[in-house]
């Protein structure tokens, strides 16, 4: 045990906390810099306290590696991390996400004209969306083989129902009055769909697209626990855990966290461009 690290971590935490309290209650608390700065300081504090505790208490690497160890591991194994990222994220998660979401939107448009199908499919869809769909992973791995196709299939199943429910809800979002206006223009069904109801559904569709980004990544990673070729983030996590190389596991998790946030951010950015007219985007 080395007291220096512990005291340093404690002092840093106290200082950062005092700084944050002061910043949050100061008259600058509404400026952009402070809004961005406070969470950043909080994040840095966690990293420093983590580092201090691990070093100060001499926590062995097989229980919790220090942030600097993880960073060194990331630097040292960029090619492996990149290969895993391509296998899991680009091939597995992204393919499945695109297929699943477009299939859901198309299904929603197809059942749009039948109130009967909607009344039947929506409760079933809502029910399935709450189920532990990750459990289908072993079955789909058995059907589609070990490579990325089975991971994409798991992702398709996972994103389909939340997306379907959101799109159907969105297609019902335009008001009676707006639809009547389209009727007085003598607009046909496809015209109403394209010019009124799909644009009106966009906030809902993007809500679904945002929720499912996380599901896609989770599905692709967990499916790899059930069997995969010798690359991929889920494969790497489960095997390196077995070898007790936890710094590599944390490096993979850091990449997964980064990929998840970037994915979500990208979808949110597209949403900003598409639904610029919506009150929530005009601030």
């Amino acid at each position: 045990m080395s007291w220096g690290w512990l005291i340093f971590a404690l002092a840093f935490w106290a200082g950062a906390y005092a700084l944050n309290v002061w910043l949050a209650n100061s008259r600058y608390s509404d400026t952009r810099a402070v809004r961005l700065g406070v969470p950043v300081i909080f994040g840095i504090t966690i990293l420093v306290v983590w580092q201090g505790l691990v070093r100060g208490l001499n926590v062995p690497m097989v229980i919790l590696p220090a942030p600097t160890d993880i960073w060194l591991r990331i630097i040292a194994s960029v090619p492996t991390l990149w290969e895993d990222f391509v296998q899991t994220f680009v091939k597995g998660a992204l393919t499945g996400y695109v297929i699943g979401c477009s299939a859901a939107v198309i299904t929603a448009i197809l059942i749009d004209r039948s109130k009967f199908l909607q009344r039947g499919l929506l409760p079933v869809g809502n029910f399935i969306a709450a189920l532990p769909i990750v459990g289908t992973a072993p079955i789909l791995v058995m059907w589609f083989g070990f490579d990325w196709q089975s991971k994409a299939a798991v992702v398709v199943v996972m994103v389909f129902f939340p997306m379907l429910v959101n799109t159907v809800e969105g297609l019902a979002a335009s008001t009676r009055m707006q639809q009547d206006l389209m009727a007085t223009y003598s607009a046909s069904y496809p015209q109403t769909l394209r010019k009124l109801r799909l644009p009106a559904a966009m906030p809902f569709i993007f809500n679904g697209l945002k929720i499912t980004t996380t599901l896609a990544l989770i599905g692709a990673i967990v499916a790899e626990f059930f069997g995969s070729p010798i690359k991929g983030m889920g494969f790497r996590i489960s095997t390196e855990v077995g070898r007790l190389r936890l710094d590599m596991v944390w490096a993979e998790i850091a990449v997964a966290a980064l990929a998840g946030s970037a994915f979500y951010g990208a979808v949110a950015l597209i949403e900003k461009g598409v639904t610029f007219w919506h009150p929530s985007q005009r601030g």
Binding site: P39, T214, I218, G260
Partner: peptide, 18 residues
Amino acid sequence: MGVMPWAIASQTIPILAI
């Protein structure tokens, strides 16, 4: 101001991986 952005951001992270 410090914790809330992280709580929201953490929802975009595949926590199940750990």
